[in-house]
C-alpha cells in the first residue's frame, strides 16, 4: 500500500513538473546603463538569465558596476509584469545579492600598510521598467529606472614598526554605502 502511494505521488509530481515546464521559458536580459549618485555618475553592465512563467520572471544576474569602486554584483532577480498591453508592458523589478570587489587600488599610500583589501558587501536594487515588444516571439527592448544600493567594504591593516614582532596591526575599516539611481536600457530575448 505504501509503495503504491509513493508511486502515485511520484507520478503526480512528475506530471505536475512536466506541465509546469511546458509553461516555463528561458529568458535572457542584457543591460547597459548609468548610475547617478552623490555628485558622480558611472556606467553599469548587467546580464540576467532565467525563466519566464506567466507574468513572472526569475533569474540570476551578474554585472560590472563602475560606481566609485569597480565591482561585480551577483544577484537573484525577479520581475513582475503589470499593465500588459499587447506586446508592451510595465514591470516591476527587484534584485538582491552580493557585491564582489574588483577595485583594489590604494587611494593613498602609507609606508607601513601591509594589507589593503576590498571585501564583499550587499547589493540590491528595485525599479520599474517598460518593455517594448519587438518583432516576433518575446524579443523586446526594455527601459528600467530605479534605485540601486551597493556596499563596498575596505580594510586597511597598518602594521607600524615595533621592536619585537609580531607588531600589533592597527585596522581601519571603511564601509561605503552607496545609494544610486539606476537607468538601464536592455534587450530581452
Amino acid at each position: 500500500m505504501k509503495k503504491v502511494l509513493i508511486s502515485a505521488l511520484s507520478l503526480l509530481f512528475i506530471y505536475t513538473a512536466v506541465s509546469a515546464q511546458q509553461k516555463l521559458k528561458f529568458s535572457s536580459q542584457t543591460y547597459a546603463g548609468v548610475l547617478l549618485g552623490d555628485g558622480r555618475s558611472d556606467l553599469q553592465l548587467q546580464t540576467i538569465n532565467g525563466v519566464k512563467w506567466k507574468n513572472w520572471f526569475g533569474g540570476i544576474g551578474a554585472g560590472i558596476d563602475w560606481y566609485s569602486f569597480r565591482s561585480v554584483p551577483v544577484f537573484a532577480s525577479v520581475n513582475r509584469d503589470i499593465f500588459k498591453k499587447g506586446k508592451n508592458t510595465l514591470l516591476l523589478s527587484a534584485d538582491v545579492g552580493i557585491n564582489l570587489p574588483w577595485h583594489q587600488d590604494n587611494y593613498y599610500y602609507i609606508d607601513f600598510t601591509t594589507n589593503n583589501e576590498f571585501r564583499p558587501g550587499l547589493y540590491w536594487a528595485s525599479g520599474v521598467g517598460y518593455r517594448f515588444g519587438v518583432g516576433k516571439a518575446d524579443n523586446a527592448l526594455l527601459m528600467n529606472f530605479g534605485y540601486s544600493f551597493k556596499q563596498s567594504r575596505q580594510e586597511f591593516a597598518n602594521v607600524y614598526p615595533c621592536l619585537n614582532p609580531p607588531c600589533l596591526p592597527f585596522v581601519e575599516k571603511y564601509d561605503y554605502r552607496l545609494n544610486r539611481l539606476s537607468i538601464k536600457l536592455g534587450w530581452i530575448f
Binding site: V171, E172, D175, Y176, N179, L181
Partner: peptide
C-alpha cells in the same frame, strides 16, 4: 537624485 547621499561608516 538630489536626495541620494553616499555614506561611509568608518571604524578605526
Amino acid at each position: 537624485q538630489g536626495c541620494l547621499k553616499d555614506k561611509l561608516i568608518y571604524t578605526y
